[in-house]
Simulated scan of single mutants.
Amino acid sequence: MRRQFRNVITFAAAGLLIAAGAQAQQPNFVLKGKIGDLPSPAKLYIAYTTTGTQGTYDSVTIHDGRFEIRQYVAHPAKALLSVSRTGVSKRLFATGDLTFVYIEPGAEIELSTPGNDISAAVFKGSVTQTQYEVFRKKIKPLEITRDSIWRLRYSKTPGLDTAAMAKQVTVAMNAYLAGLKQFVSAHPDFYVSLDVLDLYAGANFDLAEITPLFNALSKKTKTSPKGLEYADRLRNASRSVIGKPAPAFSMADTLGKKVSLSDFKGKYVLVDFWASWCGPCREENPNVIAAYRQYRDKNFTVLGISLDSKKGDWMKAIHHDQLEWTQVSDLKGWKNDAAVMYDVKAVPHNVLIDPSGNIIAKNLRGEALQKELQRILGK
């Protein structure tokens, strides 16, 4: 069954603007314009990813509101722009003085604002940005309805019928998701439809639903760099669907000893993807501990796979949370070999494997994990 809700915020690889530093290639797009009358030392910062985890982070000083950035991008990409009025970048992208724009090769993009607030910026000169604005016009009313009902549902309004509000939240969320899906279907030639499809699919998508949506996109869209990247993701996801044999992997444990998934054959094993920096993972750990202790004598175990990049942080979290099962990591962060193999785009994420090595369930959290283990091991 398709999920009714997706988290508004996830700890996902796609949400990270990682690589700092300018690309080596020659500039192939221009972003210029005027942000009110902002004086120096104010700066405009730009950050964007190109393919996978490769990206650019750059800045330029603003003079009397005017600026110009010349940079390189391999293909259309959604760039985050942020203004620092002091010219200091500390916690830059955590402020509200920011906006997004689609940049693309060969574009000369002009930005203008009615005042000094970049969040009200208007753009021209980017075909992909124009596509995005078509999308925003269609989806914004559904977003407004969804968000207003959501806020009311979780407000402390006296006498609020929470059960009725919960149903309204479901209706509003489903209408929003239907809007995303309809846009992708109606605009197969839009490059931005790939991003909308990604938004609709979520981190843990239904492969049977998403594959036909992707296949219906135009050849030009599917064979673009982002399209080819998404096709790779679909192929990876197809290897770890419920009912198929779990992809094999080996990885070092905390002492550097190689541990293989095949070492656990003959048992029910919960492969648990997590990280020390992931708040929801740490909140879920007590539930996994409870399940482990209840069923470890009934042919069940847990194999933890950390998406950490620093061993010290990983080890500290293991000890602090008192995790008792085998833990492995290659300390590659989101590039963790097993995470890539299992198409892990957000954590926490888990996969339940039966004694014969087949995947029988995914993303079991809280009560759902307890219920599934009770069903198969509670006899």
Rank of each mutant, 00 (worst) to 15 (best):
A248Q: 12
Y102H: 01
M341I: 06
S276W: 08
T128G: 00
S224L: 11
N287E: 07
V134M: 12
K311Q: 13
D354S: 13
S155R: 11
Y200L: 03
L199A: 15
G243I: 09
I62F: 04
L152K: 11
F300T: 10
K371N: 12
T95H: 13
Y295I: 04
A275G: 05
G36R: 08
K137H: 11
A120M: 13
R66V: 08
G357I: 08
L17D: 07
G33P: 08
A317L: 05
V184D: 05
Q54T: 14
G256Y: 06
V127I: 15
L44G: 02
A361I: 00
E68S: 14
A166N: 15
N236W: 01
Y57H: 15
L255Q: 14
Y102W: 13
L323V: 11
H320G: 04
V30W: 00
S89N: 12
M315N: 13
D297F: 02
V127H: 12
D297P: 01
G266P: 06
F264I: 03
T49Y: 06
T86I: 02
A14W: 10
L270G: 00
P105R: 08
A216S: 15
V288G: 01
G256K: 01
W314N: 02
W150N: 12
I149N: 04
Y45F: 15
L228P: 01
S148Y: 01
P188D: 10
G52V: 02
L98M: 12
W150K: 08
D195S: 09
D97E: 14
A172L: 04
N336T: 05
L197M: 07
F67K: 09
L17V: 00
L217G: 03
M315I: 09
R146M: 10
T113M: 07
Q370I: 05
K310V: 09
G55C: 07
K332H: 04
T86M: 03
K310A: 14
L92R: 09
A120E: 15
I109V: 08
P114G: 10
N236K: 13
Y154W: 15
G304A: 12
P76M: 14
D64Q: 15
L44A: 02
K257P: 00
G304N: 08
F249E: 05
H320E: 13
G106V: 14
